[in-house]
Design a protein around this nucleic acid. Sequence first.
RNA 1: UCGGGGAUGGUGUAAUUGGCAACACAGCUGGUUCUGGUCCAGUCGUUGGGGGUUCGAGUCCUCCUCCCCGAACCA
Length: 577
Amino acid sequence: MSENIQDSPSETQKADLATGTDFIRALVESDAQTDRFGGRVQTRFPPEPNGYLHIGHAKAICLDFGIAHEHDGICILRFDDTNPETEDESYVDAILEDLQWLGFVPDEVRHSSDYFERLYEWAQHLVRVGLAYVDDQGSDEIADQRGGFGKPGLNSPFRDRTMAENLDLFHRMRDGEFPPGSRVLRARIDMQSENMQLRDPVMYRIRTAKHHRTGEEWPIYPTYDWAHGQGDAIEGVTHSLCTLEFSDNRALYEWFLGHLPLEQPAPYQTEFARLELSHTLTSKRKLKQLIDRGDVDGWDDPRLPTLRALRRRGYPAAALRDFCSFIGVSRTNSRHAIELLESFVRAELNAKAQRRMAVVRPLKLIITNWPTDEEGRPVTEYRTLMNNPENDADGTRQVPFSGELWIEQDDFRQEPPPKYFRLSPGREVRLRGGYLVTCTGAIEDGDGKTTEVHCTYDPATAGGAAADGRKVKATIHWVEANHALDATVALYERLFSADVPGERTGEPLDDLNPSSREIVTGCKVEPILGEQVAGDVVQFERLGYFAVDAENERLFHRTVGLRDEWAKIQKRQSGGS
RNA sequence: UCGGGGAUGGUGUAAUUGGCAACACAGCUGGUUCUGGUCCAGUCGUUGGGGGUUCGAGUCCUCCUCCCCGAACCA
């Protein structure tokens, strides 16, 4: 199930062009040379188990694991579970599963909650040396006293308690003597600091919620700032990589570690820009809102950027990894075009996905000169088609063919527009892997809608090549009508129509694309598609890549469409630009 | 308002650390092709603004502008 990604070569040519160095790798490299950590490199990936992993996490994962492994170091998966009110075991499992799918195996799995006892000891140490105190105020008062940008804060009236009193109170907090919210332990730093993070930040709060691992053992819980760097130090992390919004927390990270009796050199934090993608969102809160409102079906709805959704949609993990390595890391806030991600998906799938034929919007095609049997039914024969012209090793398959076929409605026009190469009266095209056929006419219903196309075939063109070397301008796909399987196809478009959801109005939901999903039933697919299993991704020739749904093997999710030259031409013709 | 960070084509990332601004995506043109796919060739186009140092500046100095983050007992 898991792949050894360190040893596997880049999956695509593009990935080979990825830059080998970035500012973080340069930093790590220089530390390795100056022997700051005795030549050791260790990282960690620290998700909070309160939501699902998304494409943004994939970037961090590739970085954290990539850097450690490049230096023969380890990367620990650490669940940052310091807030029992929002965290849950089910997310732990989901994160493990998604991480493995992405292709990474943590060298160790830990939890911040493993360190509660050690953290408690260290906190007492800080109290003893006068660097932490118990504040009896509520969160509103503390917030009021914190001041603002350019406005210094006020010292808490409890800031100068004696060490003995602080220690006693802190012990009693731990013993559960006080109600939630009544007291906190604060670091005693500087209420005048221009860095708000340093204005006596809270280290412990009192909570009665049941913790998913420690149960009711602890009535007090460390905050992120008090747990994170300490967890890094306990594990032996050397390079603590996180996103830009934690930049101001770095001073606090260093302050805590600088005042603790550590045996090893302290790890240090480096920030990088988080991954943003056009036409989508990675905010947990907003994602949850989409689900709660019913805009999407759930956390694995293929329109979402969560890893489970991407997997369900058919995005190969290798494409995600290649993409992440290609975009690199920097400190510049930016938003990558989702088209770039898609180009990696196509590159990977073009090489790996087997070809199949499927007709999404069927139109009957009758070959009027096709032989029939004694009972007047069209004779069936089997054509041999390549499973993947990009990879001979994938071999061939037999596909039934007869004089009664389904073709795509788009592939016939009674009156062809300029540059339209497909079927229309009098026009000859190739049925892929079959024969050259010439359209002799079409039947319409009362509303002028074409219901049946009539053609004659040239028996001398079996396989699709004309003996006389004559060329046709189009090759279309088909499915033999009497052997066809019915299927349903889910066509996806961008979830948000705007490049940057919410840029106009401030509300991303205003930019929701109302037609981000179209479910088409009554599709006709070749019989072998009945043998695909959940998660398989194939190319429907001329249409795109499609993934077999996990529960319904006759439901195909469109992973991504093929590049479509004809669509571009039409767009230009309709005066697009 | 204070502090921190950032700005290179349409988009994103690079530039041997002061020496011909490159790569990819997107676009466009053409070629190949039994997928209007793939592939191949070509093409378009870039250092936020002013001043300075220098033979030479994306890179150094200086002023300005704009953008992002920060005032949870969230992470």
